[in-house]
Write a protein that binds this DNA or RNA. Structure first.
Lengths: 137, 137
DNA sequence: TGATCCTAAGACGTCTTGTCTGAGATGTCA
DNA sequence: TGACATCTCAGACAAGACGTCTTAGGATCA
C-alpha cells in the first residue's frame, strides 16, 4: 500500500479548495481567486504551493504553453486520511471510537441524527439484499 | 465558549498518554515511563513538555515539594476536538460528512456496523422518551 | 525586436518542535 | 551547620516546516 500520505498545510489547502471548485485552473486564475491579486508575488506563492502539492501527489499538472492544474486528491479522500490519522494517533487505529464519539448525544443536531439513521438503515438494507438476494460474486 | 483550543504535538501527546495511563505522575516517573531515562536531559524535556501542556490547559499541576501532574483533557475530549477541526477545515463545520464517510461500506466491519446501529437506536429511544415523557425543564 | 507572459529555482524570515543546560531554591541527614 | 541530592524555573539552541517573495531565463506575438 503506497501509504506515504503527506498532509496538506493551510495555504496548500486553500489552493486545493479553489481547484475543487473550479475543476481546473492556471496559476494566474488561482492567484486571482485566492489572493485577489495577480502580482508577481502572489503568482510565485501560488506556484510554490502547487509545486509542493504536486510533489505530495495532491495535484496533477498538465504541461503546455501555460500549465493547467487539477486536484488529484478529492475532498473526501482528504477527510478520510485525516480521520484515519486521528484514529491512528488516538484510538490505536480503530475507527469505531470516532463513530461513537460523533454519535454521542448533543454533538449532532437532530437533523444530522436523522440523516445518520437514514444512512444506517440504507446500509443495512444493502447488506441484507446482498446476503439474501444476490450472493456476492 | 472558551474555544481557544490548542492542539497537542506528538511529544506532548506521549506525555498525555502516560498521564492517561497512570492517572497522576511526577516528572521523574514520566521521564522513566516515556524515555526509559532519568537523565537531566530527559527530565528537562519532559518538564518543558508539561509546561507547554499546562499552558494549553491540557494538564493540571499540583504544586508541592515535587509537583504532581494529571491530565485535565481526556482522550475523548481530544478526539472530539480533532474531529471538529477536520469538520471545520473540510466540511464547513458540519460533522455529518465525517459520519457518512465513516459509515460508508467496507470502512466498517460488520461488528462495528452492528454497534453503530445499536447506538443509533439507543439514541433514538432516549430522544423519544425525552420529548414525550419528560418535557425539558 | 521589444514587450509580455510564462516556468523554474532558490532565498529569505518566522514560527514550531523537541531537546538540552545552567542557575537557583528546597529539603535531608550526618 | 554544612554537604549533597533533588527539584523547579527559565532560557538557549538546532532543525525543520511554512508562507512569501524575487530573480533569471525561455517562449510567444504584435
Amino acid at each position: 500500500m503506497n501509504d506515504d500520505f503527506q498532509d496538506v498545510t493551510t495555504a496548500e489547502l486553500a489552493v486545493l479548495q479553489a481547484l475543487w471548485r473550479s475543476g481546473t485552473s492556471t496559476i494566474r486564475q488561482l492567484a486571482r481567486s485566492i489572493y485577489d491579486d495577480e502580482s508577481a508575488a502572489a503568482y510565485g506563492t501560488v506556484q510554490k504551493l502547487l509545486d509542493r502539492l504536486e510533489a505530495k501527489g495532491h495535484v496533477r499538472r498538465e504541461r503546455g504553453p501555460t500549465h493547467v492544474f487539477a486536484a488529484s486528491t478529492a475532498r473526501d479522500e482528504l477527510i478520510g486520511r485525516r480521520l484515519r490519522a486521528v484514529a491512528d494517533t488516538l484510538c490505536d487505529g480503530s475507527l469505531a471510537p470516532l463513530l461513537t464519539h460523533l454519535v454521542q448525544a448533543d454533538r449532532l443536531s437532530s437533523v444530522e441524527r436523522d440523516e445518520l439513521r437514514a444512512l444506517v438503515e440504507r446500509l443495512d438494507g444493502e447488506r441484507k439484499s446482498r446476503i439474501n438476494g444476490r450472493p456476492r460474486s
